[in-house]
Each structure stands twice: as structure tokens, then as C-alpha cells.
């Protein structure tokens, strides 16, 4: 589904990603952990097509296609979704109208007719119920005045509406209270199937208790310095990142 080879990326002359290799297959859940500033959000922005980064080396393939030249919206139309670490507030655009536009533009991008308004509304109601969100969010401006946790929940609501093939969840757990974490994680699990994949970026094991990863990677200094199974996350939780420095990288 996603194949990243030797990816180097820089911004403002500073190299942030220094040779990332990552392959995610359909049906898999991968987790990326790593210290602050190691390049996790940069990696997700680059995969999603943010144009501020300059890619100096390497390649990104998604669904068997080289997506390096594609715009963010084209990647989204292919089924790529990024749940932002810091969702953006957009006053003046309601959640409902935003989603309606996003879904119909995505459908248009795939050569489909717009979704009938009735179906859209029904789907919104269902997904809101799944994520235990209040209906009043539908008429509010996107993320405007939302609490930290509400923003994250709203990201997953959008994911549920858009049904992506690959969802990158950048610290979706931060800001969520314990109950919200459970609701959001179970929402994510309900969206999983053998045809899609999830890349979870997190600092904490607690999310991985709910969304169990097939693989865990440690990103440090712009490189993946270690990969392993879910036990690696547990090990990190108890030992921190420092112990990796003393171990030879793989």
C-alpha cells in the first residue's frame, strides 16, 4: 500500500528526513514512535504532499503509484488521509459544508457523482453516533473553539466519513481523555479491514493497547533506527529512547 524508499526531505535548507525506508501493506497497522523533533510530523506532511518540503532523494509509492508529483488533493482522492497533530481552525466553514465539499470533490476526483444530500446526512449521523459526538458539531465552524480532544475526535469523524485506504494518525491520542481515547480507538478499529492500513504516530503505549500494531518503528534524528513488533513499544515505554543509542541500529 505504502512504500517509502530512502526518503530525504528538507525545509529552509535544513535536512529533517535523512533516508526513511518504510513499507506498509494492506490490512496492517504500523506505529511510529520517537522523540520530539525527530521528524514524525514532517514524514506525515511529506507523505500527504505538503509543498513546503523539498524532497532531495528517495521515492514514495502509494497503491502501486509514484505519488511524488501529485498534489495533496490528488493523494487524498487516492485514499490518503492525515489526521493532523494540530488540526487547523477554519472560522466561517461549517463542519457539514466542509465534509460535503470534501466528499463530493473526492468523488469527482474519482469520476463519481456527488453523494445525495440525504445519504450524506445519514452517514454523518451514523459516524457521529459511533464517535459519541454531539450533533451540534455539525453546524459549528471546523475546529473553531473546539477543545483539544474535540479536535482529535473530529479528525477521526472525518476519517470515518472519507473512508481512506491509508490513514496516518499523527498523535491523535494527545489531548484525549481516557474515555475519549477508548471511543476514538474503537472508532478507528471499526474502520479497519483487510483493504486499508493505518500508520499511528504516538508517544504513548496507551493508544497501542487499543489499536494493536503489527509493527513498531522508532524514528530518531530523521531516520528509522529500529523496527520491531508491538513489544518494542512496551520496551520503549519502560526504557525511554536513550537505550537505543547504545544499541547498534538495524
Amino acid at each position: 500500500m505504502l512504500k517509502i524508499k530512502n526518503l530525504h526531505a528538507r525545509i529552509d535548507e535544513v535536512e529533517i528526513l535523512k533516508g526513511i525506508n518504510l513499507e506498509i501493506k494492506a490490512g496492517e497497522v504500523h506505529a511510529i514512535m520517537g522523540p520530539n523533533g525527530s521528524g514524525k510530523s514532517t514524514l506525515s506532511s511529506v507523505i500527504a504532499g505538503r509543498e513546503d518540503y523539498e524532497i532531495t532523494e528517495g521515492s514514495i509509492e502509494f497503491s502501486g503509484e509514484d505519488i511524488m508529483e501529485l498534489s495533496p488533493e490528488e493523494r487524498a482522492h487516492m485514499g490518503l488521509f492525515l489526521s493532523f497533530q494540530y488540526p487547523v481552525e477554519i472560522p466561517g466553514v461549517s463542519v457539514t459544508n466542509f465534509l460535503k465539499t470534501a466528499i463530493n470533490e473526492s468523488r469527482k476526483g474519482r469520476g463519481l457523482e456527488p453523494m445525495p444530500a440525504k445519504d450524506m446526512l445519514k452517514k454523518m449521523r451514523e459516524k457521529m453516533a459511533m464517535l459519541e459526538m454531539d450533533k451540534s458539531f455539525m453546524s459549528r465552524a471546523i475546529n473553531e473553539g473546539f477543545s483539544g480532544g474535540e479536535k482529535k475526535r473530529n479528525e477521526i469523524f472525518q476519517m470515518a466519513m472519507l473512508e481512506p485506504k491509508l490513514a496516518i494518525l499523527d498523535e491523535t491520542d494527545s489531548g484525549l481523555d481516557i474515555d475519549a481515547l477508548r471511543v476514538v480507538a474503537s472508532g478507528v478499529n471499526k474502520l479497519r479491514n483487510e483493504n486499508n492500513a493505518i500508520l499511528v504516530i504516538t508517544h504513548y503505549q496507551r493508544l497501542l493497547d487499543h489499536i494493536i500494531p503489527d509493527k513498531v518503528h522508532v524514528l530518531q534524528g530523521g531516520k528509522i533506527v529500529r523496527s520491531g513488533d508491538k513489544n518494542l513499544a512496551l520496551e520503549l515505554e519502560s526504557k525511554g529512547y536513550d537505550w537505543l543509542k547504545h544499541e547498534p541500529a538495524i
Partner: peptide
């Protein structure tokens, strides 16, 4: 706002529409 623009485009809304 460039961040808002990227956010909208990430959700599939093309540049001009965003």
C-alpha cells in the same frame, strides 16, 4: 492561511476550491 489551505486540500478539496 497556508496551513488552512493544506488542511482543506488534504481532505480532497482541490487548490482553487480550497
Amino acid at each position: 492561511d497556508e496551513d488552512a489551505l493544506f488542511y482543506l486540500r488534504q481532505r480532497g478539496i482541490p487548490h482553487k476550491e480550497a
